[in-house]
Design a protein around this nucleic acid. Structure first.
Lengths: 225, 225
DNA sequence: AGAATTTTGTACTGGCCGGTTAAATTGACG
DNA sequence: CGTCAATTTAACCGGCCAGTACAAAATTCT
């Protein structure tokens, strides 16, 4: 594991047996899981250090302080999500099918990445201060709107979608349904039982919201111009 | 401020000049706001005490410890919400109108009570341990499902709703859209701007999701039996 | 009035935890 | 090997903060 990342901050840039990048990644992955589990103020640096293969001092060496670690952990969580979204190619589908696939993908993806959802929850508790300062995260998400805009434009052009569909609002709706499903699962199952969260019910739910959202933008007799 | 609340937990029930119930309420209302703002581990008992008209000692006297205070604060937040929902009477409306009104009310209500939303977010970060142990909160929420069940039954009976509508799933959808609107507002506006959160846009959004959800349960040619 | 009980204030502590100090180890390079 | 810089370790602070000890009021009972 002596691979090089071409340019790191090193002045003399020659190979090390040790693996600082690996240590960084190790710390970050533990940090994401720990922050996601316990929140920003609830997470303990000592606990993170204990689950790392390095020491507490290294966390401060690489990340400065707790807030710095949190900021990088949040970016790491978003970066991992982007990696998942890259594999999606919707250009080859009709607008309504493309939209249906995008919704289904988002729903499943959020469901498969609870740590990411929890990081965003925590960030919202803290008024998204961190997200607001991170251009990395912002550009990533604007791309999601672009994808939707494209689908909407095609749909309106071919007449399957009604005019006046707002891509950002559509994104909001898809996010709301997919996000809530993970974020509020604990309270929802505490109050109403866990039935809705079995695999079968989740699949039914996903198909139901796909239908609901797609139909809401589809051209119908009432919405014909 | 020597007003009496008729019956308090007093053993012999005679008048007190002091107002323990008032003190309790005062503490709870500050606690809700402080926990909502900073989370369970982020909130500081000293800060709560400072915003109270009493002292830190009293918090421990009345609520035992921080977790006890949090538990009661959460119940207080839910109780306040119930108070708001009581004024809603949907029996006099046709099923589709009743559903539309319920969705609109929920959306507006959540929007008007961000502290409540944040308490639930925080509770979900902590896996809803507290909600799970509170019968008070559970019974309150089951009532919400009953209301929806009734609307659904009436709707199916009169043929305006398609058969097989699941009230719990419907509640899930309404909650998701109304909850996310408040819970993720910070991250959403950090990423995409605050346009969606102006009064005008919020009203449009509300009407849009009302239309979307109501149409999704309405009987159409395709869903005719 | 005075005893009994509930309510409130002040001052304190113990330990947890974010962050640091100082030194040791590792590798690069001559 | 010696030297420099990058990396790592272990032991240690210092302040914050949940919770408490100890009583002093306040209030009711008799």
């Amino acid at each position: 594991m002596t691979e090089r990342t071409a340019d790191k901050g090193a002045t003399t840039a020659q190979g090390w047996k040790q693996d600082p990048e690996g240590v960084r990644r190790d710390i970050l992955s533990v940090a994401v899981s720990e922050f996601a589990a316990r929140g920003l103020s609830g997470a303990r640096i000592d606990d993170i250090a204990a689950r790392t293969r390095t020491s507490k001092r290294m966390i401060y060496y690489y990340f400065g302080d707790k807030d710095g670690l949190y900021a990088r952990a949040l970016e790491a969580a978003y970066a991992k999500v982007r990696h998942g979204e890259e594999n999606l190619d919707l250009a080859g589908f009709e607008p309504d099918d493309a939209l249906a696939r995008l919704i289904g993908f988002t729903f499943d993806h959020h469901r498969a990445n609870p740590d990411f959802i929890r990081m965003v929850m925590i960030e919202n508790i803290h008024n998204a201060d961190c997200i607001a300062h991170s251009d990395v995260i912002r550009t990533l998400n604007v791309a999601a709107i672009d994808t939707l805009s494209d689908i909407c434009k095609r749909g309106v052009a071919t007449g399957v979608f009604r005019a006046g569909v707002n891509p950002m609002q559509l994104h909001w709706q898809i996010s709301a349904l997919s996000f809530f499903n993970v974020s509020n699962r604990p309270s929802f199952s505490a109050l109403f039982g866990a039935d809705l969260f079995t695999d079968a019910q989740q699949n039914a739910l996903r198909d139901d919201i796909i239908r609901m959202v797609v139909e809401s933008v589809r051209m119908t007799k009432e919405t014909l111009p």
